[in-house]
Design a protein around this nucleic acid. Structure first.
Lengths: 191, 191
DNA sequence: ATAGCCTTTAATACCTGGTGCCAAAAAGTT
DNA sequence: AACTTTTTGGCACCAGGTATTAAAGGCTAT
């Protein structure tokens, strides 16, 4: 026993099931050359559920992800909001948001976070994006936490058009910058 | 027996499983007030597989749709694509895309369609949005079918930057217009 | 070496959610 | 009454496990 095989096997097992979650324990024994009990102990230690549970989880995920499409309502979690002044939101880049080959976020998700925040920060019944001028400064990657900061430059309470600037950062680095013009109903009675 | 109950029950059974495919036969007996054998005969006649098979099928479906996911990568259905020239996509505004109170689409969904199309039309390993200048001309509403048309104005095969113009229409009316600058890997295949 | 530990394998009982098959009861038809 | 269809019940069996107990192999420290 080289003191390693177990951890190595755990890694291999995770990898195998990651590649093909449809494997039974018995099929795993063939690949890993250990007894079925060992496989089961390994799954136990790694907190990997049995085949049927895995299938059920996948089925459930796909079942309710039919409704919760990638782009929902507000993209990102609002961390701070000062109506008609500024706002901050957090959005973590996960698998669904990236090009699978490169792990780089598709631009519209980063845009969606900024756009959602720009709309949210406007204190009005109805707020719609009229136009925007945006720049993707560097790609956002899988796993990165994007912090978007929105500043209202002209609230346009009379004119019906607000001007908002949004900067999105990953850590210290700016990944996105946008200038939004938002239509507002000017009735100014927040939800 | 009124000669009907069987067919009625079959319909009800189909409906129940359609609404919730996670029901076991035993749970179905409670809803339909017949024995478990009857449920099983019914499933047999209707060619409805057992719970575990259903879950497996759902899991498989979601699994390959994650694997071969150009459908997920692009928002909207591509109707026509001439690489490095032009492209057309269709995106129907449904519940998930609108502000519930007004039925008006959130801007980032309309943007996502245009952005996806702009990226798709570029014939390259890697294509990333660098910047965009966009205008929402009139709101898109629940149920409307948005047709986005992208035209490559400068393919930038040497310079690494392509310029693409996208117009989105609902019927005759233009709802969105955008100018995109897309980075392309230009010959080199990997980053 | 002997004890103590971890790891692996084995054996057994039990579980869920079924299938397959056969038989009998109940209901509906002629 | 005789017949058909529908429903129910019972039993054996299966896959793919869990849970538990036990034993064997290997490694280390004293």
């Amino acid at each position: 026993m080289e003191r390693l095989p177990k951890r190595q096997r755990h890694q291999q097992l995770s990898k195998l099931l990651d590649e093909n979650p449809f494997l039974t324990d018995r099929e795993l024994t063939r690949q890993l050359k250990v007894s079925i009990q060992t496989i089961r102990l390994d799954r136990l230690e790694l907190a990997i559920p049995e085949l049927r549970e895995r299938l059920k989880l996948m089925a459930e995920r796909s079942y309710d992800s039919v409704r919760s499409l990638p782009l929902h309502e507000v993209i990102g979690d609002i961390l701070d909001l000062q109506l008609d002044k500024s706002g901050i939101s957090l959005f973590e880049i996960s698998d669904e948001h990236v090009f699978s080959r490169t792990g780089i976020a598709r631009g519209h998700h980063v845009f969606a976070q900024a756009n959602s925040l720009a709309v949210a920060v406007i204190n009005d019944e109805i707020a719609l994006t009229a136009s925007a001028d945006i720049r993707f400064i560097r790609p956002a990657r899988l796993g990165e936490k994007c912090i978007a900061k929105a500043y209202v430059r002209a609230s346009g309470e009379q004119k019906g058009k607000a001007k908002i600037e949004v900067f999105t950062y990953v850590g210290e680095e700016m990944v996105f910058q946008g200038n939004f013009i938002i239509y507002r109903s000017a009735g100014e009675s927040k939800t």
